[in-house]
Structure formats: C-alpha cells, structure tokens
Write a protein that binds this DNA or RNA. Structure first.
Lengths: 226, 226
DNA sequence: TCAAAAGTGTTAAGTTTACACCCATGA
DNA sequence: TCATGGGTGTAAACTTAACACTTTTGA
C-alpha cells in the first residue's frame, strides 16, 4: 500500500518524552529517571519511549506515562516536537514532548521505583540528558500561560484541597506571591470550585475548608463565555 | 554507531507542513497548494515536505517555505506534531506543522505558480487534505494568543505601513472590530513602532503617515520588562 | 498562652472601553 | 463640493492591587 513516492524518503525513530509534574510539600516536582540503558546510562532523563508502528503519538505518550505511574486518563498536552539532527547522541531520534499533570498521591511508587524514577523539585533540577532541559522549560512556560486562562491546577491536587494548597500551587507555578484575599475573592467567583462541608485538620490546627473542582459546572461556565 | 537498542524500534516518515500566512486587501490569506502527486492528487493541501536524513526539522520547515516562496529568514513557529496512525492515507507519516508570517509582496509568484499554490482567504477556505484543517486552526489559535503578547503582526506587513493597515490586520486576526482611537493610543505607547516622515497616498486621498517596526528598540523594551 | 494557619472587605490605582467630530485631498 | 479615509481626547466602567486584623485550636 505504500505509494512508491513516499518510499524514497528517509525514515526516523520517533519517541515521546513525558514531563510528569506533581505537587507536594509546597513544591512543584518533576518525575525523573536514571536512564537505564546506553548511551548515557545513569544520567537524569525524562521518561520516554519509542512510538510503535500502529500507535498514535498521543497514545504513545499515555502509554509511557502509564508505564511509569500506573495512571490513566491524566491531563496531558503536547509541548512540541524536538528534531535537531544530533539531539540524541545514540542515533537520530525525533521526539515529541508532552507534559502531564498528576496527583502525586495517586502515582504507583512500585512502578516508578522499578524504573529508577524519582520526584525532583523543579527549583533544583539536576542536569538533564540531551535537550530535556529545553523540553521542561517549554512545558513550564506552557503551564504558566495555561494557568492564566484555564483551571488546570486541580490536576496536580487531590480531589479535595484547601484554598491555601491551591494558592501555594499557583504561587509556585507562577513564581510569585499572591495576595491571599485577592486570590480567595477570585476563586469564590468561580462557581466550579465548590466548598464542601469537610474540614482538613492535617495542615492547620484550626482546620481549613476542603474544596473540590466540579468539572460539569466548569464545562457549563465555559459554554457561557462563548 | 546506532546502538542495537534503538535498532529494534520502528521508523517513520516525518514531514513538515507549512501554514504560510499573508495579509492582502484587508484579508488574512493562506498559501495553499493543489496537491501535485498521489494519493489525493489535486486536493487542496498545505505545502509540505519530508524531512531529510541530516536535516533539523526546523530547517526542513524553512526549506519547504523557501521552495514555495523564495523567502529566507521568515518568522516561523512550530505548531505541533500530528501523529495519528491514519492521518495520511498514503502511508504512515508523522508531520510537524509550522506557521510562517510573510509579507505577501515579497513572495516569488513564479515559484508558487510552479507549485500550483494560491493565496486563499482564511475566511473562505476550501476543504483541506488529511488533518490540514486542524493544523490551520491550531496555528490561527496560536497566532491570536501570540498577538496579545508580542508584536508579530509586522511580519505580515510591508516594512512601511499605515496605522489603518495595522489595525485592519489586528481586526482580521482577532476577529473583532477595534476602536480606532483606543488602538492608536495603545500603539503610540509602543516606542518600537516608529512614525516616519513618509506619507502613503495610495490608500487615501489625504495621505496617511507610514510607520515602521524598530526591532532593536523592541528588543530593548523587552529587556526592560524582565 | 501562644504559635500557626484560616478567614474576611474596602479603597486606591490602573486599565479598558465607549464615544464624535474636524481635516486634507482627489475625483 | 463632497466622499473617503486620517487623525485626535476625555470620562465612565471595570479590573487589579494593596492592605491588617480576628478566629480557632493543638501543642
């Protein structure tokens, strides 16, 4: 079925690399792997994998994420394709980077230990393999701009969260302090962030109201804006 | 040099597709090609090409743009990788889309006629091949958001332009009318848009001042913001 | 009893929007 | 002389930013 026309052109290995972000202890964290094979075995690397013959690239990214975390149905966005000739010192590989926002508590630790993967603070990343640093920076840039226009932060939090947690998350992603009262005012205008009757007593003596993200209310409020 | 490890994985054709945008007659235009080969010969298509063995994907995009327009050093941004298994009905091809903003007057018409390429109004595009419509939509979305934060519009205009032209350009990209006085007030705050002593008498009887974009002033003003 | 995080409104500053008329010129 | 696009400022509406104290409770 391959037309002879296409056949004359070269083919390339195509990989996906995942920038898996989590939030814990007031820090934004990136799941990094000690590269388990040559070349450059042992260097810090994003979790990646080669695209399979009959696999969409988006599906490949989900597969790689799932291999490392055990998670499905995670918020992922493509960051872009990286295709410099010598970006991979092994052989030419064109890689498509994706970022994923996960609830760190839901990640399967057995799996990531099997892959020698560990959570590292974004603010203190070790040197990374190839062009992985560039991928991470681009992903963070996208996340920051996205956060201004969409409520994506919830993906990094447990289903129930306090407003202080949410604020901390925004602060660490945007890289600046946010005024507490202004923040809470803005949040209270978003009907899709619902206060529950539950109280969190872990992070404070007094206790803080737990909130949840209501996806269907959000979808409706989006429709309104159009 | 290929490690045996990589060798076991499949390889793919990788292409680039260019969303070449221009501005003429108050309209945003897209340079489209009648596909010159099978499969789907004769359908409207973006200009594309296969990546070469020792060619960065960004360079491949520039090459394809140059083939069709004769231009070099054009403003281009990657839109993303498109990699559904059956996106190309010929064979599996993973394609990376780029958009380019060109001054339509500088395009070499002989070249684009040789490639059966024509400028079509964005507002009245014919049906496009494969997933090219999706690529165009994503590119336009990126252009719109970009236009809010960067002065990229100049790339679509001649080196000297009137404020009315610039406003029209913004209006057609953003898809809404802009108040003339507010627009001009905003522009006059940007020191990198410089009024020249030249007058355009083509588009009005009275004549309109011609402006130019000063790249180095812009670079400096960017530094200030950091 | 006190340290630590939760919660709560108002005012000033800045930004964005709405709005209408005169000017210069070529046809 | 008149039709066409060029050019100009002000006030209201809205949005964003700055700011400080009281509450609850476990240690």
């Amino acid at each position: 079925m391959t037309p002879p026309f296409y056949g004359q052109y070269p083919k390339f290995h195509v990989a996906v690399d995942c920038i898996i972000l989590g939030f814990e202890g007031g820090q934004l964290k990136l799941l990094l792997q000690k590269r388990p094979f040559e070349p450059r075995q042992g260097e810090w690397s994003l979790m990646g994998g080669f695209v399979k013959r009959n696999e969409d690239i988006d599906v490949a990214a989900e597969r790689v994420l799932n291999q490392l975390t055990g998670l499905h149905g995670i918020y992922m966005k493509q960051v872009g394709a990286f295709g410099s000739v010598n970006r991979d010192s092994g052989d030419r590989v064109i890689s498509v980077a994706y970022f994923a926002l996960v609830d760190i508590a839901k990640v399967n630790n057995d799996l990531n230990h099997q892959h020698s993967a560990y959570w590292e603070d974004i603010s203190a990343l070790p040197p990374l393999l190839f062009d992985h640093k560039e991928m991470v920076e681009k992903a963070l840039y996208r996340l920051r701009t996205l956060l201004h226009s969409r409520p994506v932060g919830f993906n990094l939090l447990p289903p129930l969260f306090t407003l202080s947690q949410l604020q901390q998350l925004y602060e660490v992603i945007l890289g600046r302090d946010i005024d507490k009262r202004n923040f809470r005012k803005r949040i209270s205008e978003m009907e899709f962030i619902e206060k529950t009757k539950l109280i969190d007593k872990v992070n404070s003596k007094r206790g803080a109201a737990l909130y949840q993200f209501n996806k269907s209310v959000y979808e409706e409020s989006k429709l309104f804006k159009l």
